[in-house]
């Protein structure tokens, strides 16, 4: 039982990271119908920007407070997302290109980001200091590392904030309206270009934050983006592309299947690699809309 409770904390933390990645996909996908596979590299960029703030990379012998790193990641990644939308997506949409064109262009962006990270920060993994150390914490019957509890707390808070944004604010409603019907939303006076730019900026910020939160567990390294992109996409497919809460649910299900499977299934642990892909195929075949269906127009 102790093992199960320990594993619950670990799987929840991993699931929260996957959920954030799925949310980053969703924020871009809902209003634009564009699947942005570059978000994995944005997560890696977020990790490096955060580590740069926290360690000696950018400012020798300077260890910034963690909140500075969070702000830097959100702002820098938001700007990068906005710039990427301006330079690669908008020109294509203006020319009436098919929706596959920006997806392919963003795959090019993925390569540019990864190679730039290697050139700027080198190929060595960089240690990332956790904000509250890495000691074991026990809360009731649950035990885990302080960073895992931190990830869970930050992610749940962020999901609540994003849910409130979509449900309670005019801008959130505008996003939803564009997602439901772009043409009708434009006729109602919603600025499609601005919504698209904001979606990219917000998606990049969320992905960057996921990278920063995860980096103390894995270090910041230039190869961290692709697995996160796959795990986030799988979580999105499981939870459904229509609702914020679906992203979190999908992430948690994926992480629990991965970690409980690795612990309790009588199979070689190397086979757990196949779990995300198996789930992805299963859901695409049996329930392509995911567990939580998108909201219908009201």
């Amino acid at each position: 039982m102790d093992d199960f409770l320990e594993l619950t904390v670990s799987a929840m933390a991993s699931g929260c990271i996957y959920g954030l990645m799925a949310l980053a996909y969703l924020i871009v996908l809902r209003p634009t119908s564009i699947i942005n596979f570059a978000i994995g590299e944005w997560a890696a960029t977020g990790a490096f920007v955060g580590v740069g703030m926290l360690s000696t990379l950018a400012w020798p012998h300077f260890e910034g407070p963690y909140i500075l790193a969070v702000v830097a990641v959100v702002v820098v990644l938001g700007l990068l997302g906005w710039v990427v939308e301006r330079l690669t997506v908008r020109p294509l949409l203006r020319r009436g290109a098919a929706v596959t064109s920006p997806i392919l262009a963003l795959l090019g962006v993925l390569v540019i980001f990864r190679e730039s990270l290697t050139l700027i920060y080198g190929a060595d993994p960089l240690p990332s200091p956790p904000p509250f150390g890495f000691r074991r914490i026990e809360i009731g019957p649950f035990a885990g590392a302080s960073q895992q509890f931190f990830i869970i707390a930050v992610t749940l808070s962020l999901f609540v904030a994003v849910w409130l944004f979509f449900e309670r604010t005019v801008w959130g409603r505008a996003f939803e309206a564009v997602a439901l019907n772009r043409r009708a939303a434009a006729l109602m006076g919603i600025n499609l270009g601005r919504v698209t730019a904001l979606a990219f900026a917000a998606g990049a910020s969320v992905a960057g934050l996921a990278g920063l939160l995860m980096s103390p567990l894995t270090s910041a390294h230039y190869m961290m983006g692709l697995p996160l992109a796959i795990q986030g996409f799988t979580a999105l497919v499981i939870g459904g592309v229509g609702r914020v809460e679906g992203a979190l649910l999908g992430g948690l299900i994926l992480a629990f299947v991965e970690q409980l499977g690795a612990r309790y299934l009588p199979i070689p642990s190397g086979l757990t690699l196949a779990f995300p892909f198996a789930l992805l195929i299963l859901f695409l075949l049996l329930r392509p809309t995911g567990l939580i269906a998108p909201r219908e127009a009201r």
């Binding site: 933390a13 894995t218 697995p227 642990s269």
Partner: peptide
């Protein structure tokens, strides 16, 4: 036993629990 931590994993707790057991 031989435990594998795959590339891109976000936790090795399950692997090490098996080793502990």
């Amino acid at each position: 036993l031989e435990e594998v931590i795959p590339q891109g994993a976000t936790s090795a707790v399950a692997n090490l629990q098996k080793v502990r057991a």
